[in-house]
Design a protein around this nucleic acid. Structure first.
Lengths: 170, 170
DNA sequence: CCTCCTGAGTTTGACGATCGAACTGACCAT
DNA sequence: ATGGTCAGTTCGATCGTCAAACTCAGGAGG
């Protein structure tokens, strides 16, 4: 909830991955979010940081604002200027960015260009090496430990009969 | 390492997020990986599951194989047929998919269409609700707890002077 | 007052990517 | 022979993306 616009139509076999990609899966979108998350808030800084063409950047910024991921905040009246900031939904995309960063560090970069450092209270500063842990049980939650199940809502979206009982109509 | 092809050119301000997106950031790529990860291995199943046009699917499958994320494995000689399977690099993308799934469940779906279930040894089955935890210190590793630092490799890619000492030239 | 500069876009025209639908070609079952 | 499945290819039309040029405001310098 809280997120609205729908750039491209929802692919068959609907799932939340597809839904997320509709909002942030277009070219430049995630790089724009990275720039804003890392402290660039003005149009020109984001343009420089991502390398996106200015007209594409305008389009992406607008669609991300429409999607509820970014918000526009004025920082000057005289020449009317505003910067872009993450909403709560935008901040919740940080795990996606970190997953991509860790994957790129491991599989594509010869040497990571950016290091993430972690300094929680009571611990010395050290590089981040994170894994996906289930809040409920504290165990790693990835791969074969995880199974999938279609909900009633999912069955409807997939065009299947709504309940799991076999239906008697031919 | 292990990953090779480069579909679209590297944006300025290189980081591993951009590098990852070059390999798996094109339209359909992540949905294709979802389909394969969730058990569709044949062309037609992937086409049905993602909704991608067949020519696009051919292109994406080829680029993902070239990227080292998928591999083609023959399952029939007589009519020469092969299916697509995740490589180790491909399996390492599961956290990206799960991060997108969780974000979509929280921010775009009214009701999640697919539920992830977790059943580790010694725990009852329950829905997955995962977060990034640092392997080194066991603390959550996201947002303000994490800081960034440009490595020497990163400075070179960003076109900055290679060492962090101030240079004395002019 | 006139000119240059910056910041945030918008417009333009060329070009490449993407679309759905139709087609191919190999194999199998009847 | 006919129909069906599978893994693509080919097609013409549309859509997205690109770099560069342009707009429109408000300073700053002269």
């Amino acid at each position: 909830m809280g997120v609205t616009a729908v750039p491209f139509p929802l692919p068959r076999g609907a799932c939340s991955i597809a839904a997320s990609l509709e909002l942030v899966g277009e070219r430049w979108s995630l790089l724009v979010i990275r720039e804003v998350a890392w402290g660039s808030h003005r149009f020109s800084d984001i343009a420089r940081g991502t390398g996106a063409p200015r007209d594409r950047l305008t389009a992406r910024l607008n669609s991300l604002v429409a999607a509820g991921v970014l918000e526009k905040r004025a920082y000057s009246d005289a020449p009317p200027r505003s910067g872009y900031h993450l909403t709560a939904a935008g901040r919740d995309l940080l795990p996606v960015l970190q997953a991509l960063l860790q994957w790129g560090d491991k599989w594509v970069a010869d040497e990571p260009p950016v290091l993430l450092k972690h300094a929680p209270a009571g611990h010395a500063e050290h590089p981040v090496d994170a894994e996906w842990i289930c809040r409920t049980c504290g165990e790693p939650a990835i791969g074969s430990r995880v199974t999938r199940e279609l909900t009633p809502a999912g069955r409807v979206l997939s065009g299947l009969p709504a309940d799991e009982e076999h239906d008697h109509e031919h």
